[in-house]
Design a binder for these strands. Structure first.
Lengths: 127, 127
DNA sequence: ACGAATTGTGTTATGTTATTACATATGCTA
DNA sequence: TAGCATATGTAATAACATAACACAATTCGT
């Protein structure tokens, strides 16, 4: 399951690893211009691959991307809290929530391929 | 709590009521051109108001809008399943999920102002 | 009924996010 | 080493969203 990343993929992954907060594709493009990246598709293509490998996550409510925080992979399920003041994101893996949503889906004849859970609000430091 | 909608707000609400599937702002603009709407701000302003009144919901993973399905208002919490084949959306209100997420937030010193839950997948008819 | 304040409208322009299309390059594998 | 799949670079464009400004309609207090 080990995969060797290409140069652009590694550049984008590193940029997201350095970032304290979610980055948009255009943030990343600006950040990586000096590394030779010039156009949006270079960023989006790298992001697509990293998303597929689940090394990064997309935050739908921000149109932005974050590095995957930990080894939730087995659980295939992440939720995020997003502080609207400082921008910091926490990733967590609420198994019971997954179960409940799965239960709803089963009852309602829906097959979920992916689930987005994002809490917007304030962390304690920003209250 | 009864509010009289303005002409543009009513036009947008009606268009979303007629729609079987989520509509983007530009879909709505096209739909409502013959009613005299010409520019994006007219749509977005109406949508902002309707969102504030919770008569419509925004689907973050689609950048699109749906009519609010029922009286979840008291519960202040909605989740959505989105069929990627037919586009149909179901809205539901998983109270226990709300409780679990609230519990996580409390433990982690996070104050959630709003929560997005969206399941992407296939409904039974599209399997 | 009046004027002030608030809310909504119409419009142009622009900002932001994402994709299409196509030509070239790189690396794997038979 | 030829062929194929994957990745790259680039320009152009599509799709989603907001800023700014002038004016109109509505609401509210007196």
């Amino acid at each position: 399951m080990k995969v060797k990343l290409t140069k652009n993929q590694q550049l984008v992954l590193d940029a997201l690893t350095r970032a304290e907060t979610p980055q948009t594709a255009y943030n990343l493009l600006d950040e990586l211009r000096e590394e030779g990246l010039r156009a949006p598709p270079q960023i989006y293509r790298a992001l697509d691959k990293l998303l597929e490998l689940e090394l990064v996550h997309r935050l739908e409510s921000l149109n932005a991307f974050v590095i995957c925080a930990h080894d939730h992979h087995d659980q295939g399920f992440s939720a995020f809290s997003i502080c609207e003041a400082c921008g910091k994101v926490s990733e967590f893996s609420p198994q019971e929530v997954a179960g409940l949503l799965q239960g709803w889906a089963a009852k309602n004849n829906f097959v979920a391929k992916s689930t987005t859970i994002e809490l917007r609000g304030h962390c304690i430091r920003c209250d």
